[in-house]
């Protein structure tokens, strides 16, 4: 009724705002739809398609007035029955889990003390965590070869000092593989942990201490539970890409370090068995969706708590 009160945002602005917001949110969704979901469906289709060796048969064929559904589950059956594939999946999960744990054990104290350091130092410390991203991952991983090889820097030093009499075999073992993965993925653990720990209210630790908790007890009872969201986020950011990692196992891994990424590569490019390769890829995605769902659940819970606190 009162025309003295002007609307804060004009109708035009509001329309543009709503449109703008939808566009900004919409673009990534369209991107994901076209470049993730559609290709994934194609890959799924390939994995269950019958092939004559060169062409894939159409999924539905009409001959003599009857609709036939040409689906072949054989690839999946083969995946499940062939011990090599099962072992490779398990081994991928194993190396990803080991990498995640080591990243957590190195990353948590690092992030903790970074968050506790004087505020003036923090940007510099943060910068140092991110500095490696300025160089190509490939180069950085490749550099580890020079360090870990039998005639590499580390063995040269050990031999030169007389600590060992013959070079220790480090390259192309699970050791070199895990070192490479921890090295490459550590920042992905540190950054979400830091973002979480830096928000921790110091007075909560004082309150714990006031109530009789020694520093270590306060850490386990207060700091760790309150940084759960950061632990989960960091672990997922390390674990998920590690499962499907190809470059690091290829460069640093050995014949004994089975990783699903390398099997995928071999199926596609050595065996040229696209259907099998697609089946391998589909199972890998499904395996990763499970931890992703856990991650999502935590994020939602945490968001609800943050909202409640505000």
């Amino acid at each position: 009724m009162s025309n003295r009160r002007k609307p804060i945002v004009s109708t035009g602005d509001r329309l543009l705002g709503a449109f703008g917001a939808r566009t900004v949110i919409g673009i990534p969704y369209v991107w994901l739809l076209l470049l993730f979901l559609v290709p994934f469906i194609i890959v799924m289709k390939i994995s269950i398609s019958e092939s004559d060796g060169i062409h894939f048969k159409d999924m539905f064929t009409i001959s003599d007035g009857t609709l036939t559904w040409n689906v072949k589950w054989g690839n999946y059956a083969f995946l499940a029955s062939d011990a090599l594939y099962v072992k490779t999946y398990l081994s991928s999960l194993y190396y990803a889990a080991i990498t995640t744990l080591i990243c957590l054990f190195i990353g948590y104290p690092f992030a903790y003390f970074m968050a506790r350091s004087p505020a003036a130092w923090r940007p510099a410390l943060l910068m140092m965590v991110m500095l490696p991203f300025w160089t190509s991952l490939l180069l950085r991983v490749f550099a580890w070869k020079g360090l870990l090889a039998n005639n590499g820097v580390i063995n040269d030093i050990l031999l030169g000092l007389g600590i060992v009499s013959e070079p220790i075999k480090m390259m192309n073992t699970s050791f070199s593989l895990v070192i490479g993965m921890v090295y490459a993925y550590l920042p992905f653990m540190i950054l979400p942990l830091y973002a979480n720990l830096v928000k921790l209210d110091i007075r909560l630790l004082e309150a714990a201490s006031d109530l009789g908790a020694r520093p270590l007890t306060a850490f386990w009872k207060i700091t760790v539970p309150l940084s759960k969201a950061g632990i989960v986020a960091g672990s997922m950011l390390v674990f998920i890409p590690c499962v499907g990692e190809f470059v690091i196992p290829e460069l640093l891994g050995g014949p004994s370090t089975l990783m699903i990424g390398r099997v995928l590569w071999d199926e596609f490019f050595s065996n040229n068995d696209w259907a099998m390769a697609s089946a391998v890829a589909v199972v890998m995605v499904l395996l990763i969706i499970i931890p992703l769902a856990i991650f999502n659940k935590y994020q939602t819970e945490n968001a609800a708590r943050e909202k409640g606190r505000a």
């Binding site: 007075r203 909560l204 714990a208």
Partner: peptide, 14 residues
């Protein structure tokens, strides 16, 4: 053997 009631309480949120 001293306890404190903190400013804005510092209750453990979890």
């Amino acid at each position: 053997p001293i306890n404190m009631m903190f400013q804005s309480y510092a209750l453990f949120p979890h």
